[in-house]
Amino acid sequence: MTNGSSAVRSDLRKKRRFSKLEQGYMGFILILPWLIGFCIFKLYPFISSLIYSFTDYDLFKGAQNFVGFENYIDAFTKSKNVKALQVTFAYAFMTVPLKLIFALFIAYILNFKIKGVGLFRTAYYVPSILGGSVAIAVLWRALFKSDGVINTILAMLGFDSINFLADRSWALFIICLLRVWQFGSAMVLFLAALKGVPEDLYEAASIDGASKSRQFLSITIPIISPVIFYNLVTQLVQAFQEFNGPYIITNGGPRNATTLISLIVYNSAFKDYKVGLSSAMAWVMFVITTIFTIIAFASQKKWVYYSDDDGRG
């Protein structure tokens, strides 16, 4: 009996010990594969690129000299790099608002009870799945070339054709348009948020005589503002990292009109072999993205409303 109860106690102690181990290390063990991947494929390149950005690292010759801030000075003084910075800002500031407005507009329409709405939702979401692919970028170029489908339609309607790919302003616009066209994922999030807006608020507002536009501005927008904020941040980050569209559709042309920073990063490293400069440009892009993200987070106190007790995030 005594032996039996001591064995049970010993078992319990073991289980308790294992349970403590489980509590202390099991979580860590479970995330270990991810952690290893993160350290090798994210953290190491991240830190290396920072170090390389202060050297004259050449793709073939490696880093031979420490050059201080020379690459960063080049990033802000060489005309090609300065132009790329300007184009990237123009791209981001054109793409993000257009995409958010368009996604919200379509989500608003699809929130109505209309026949075949499921089909429309699917149709509008599909470009998001296809959008980043090389094939779509090639298709986009075919659509907008001088004798492409868009110009054929313009000619049929009696308009002059537009050289979309070769005109500096139009070229940037069609690159933006490709990104705006991929509004599906933002739209789905807006749609989910719109469905969460309580109907009784609209009813109360209607009784008080508020118009539809007033209801939209004073009820819908504040309530879905957390989702607007989320979409704003993610779209901003994506816009600053855009590569496929300008690389495949215009290759940065004409006359660098669509050369974004990401293209400079690629071209410097793999065409000119200047990995040091490329790393510096990547860090410039990272810092810019971080600054805008911080600004967005700081500004949310003024316009984003959460349903917490204090009503603010």
Binding site: R141, K145, S146, D147, N163, A166, G253
Partner: peptide
């Protein structure tokens, strides 16, 4: 002109319609 060729949207001349 360069503008005309770029507007053709071809990777290279042999692929230009």
């Amino acid at each position: 002109s360069a503008e005309t060729l770029i507007g053709d949207g071809a990777d290279s001349l042999d692929k230009n319609p």
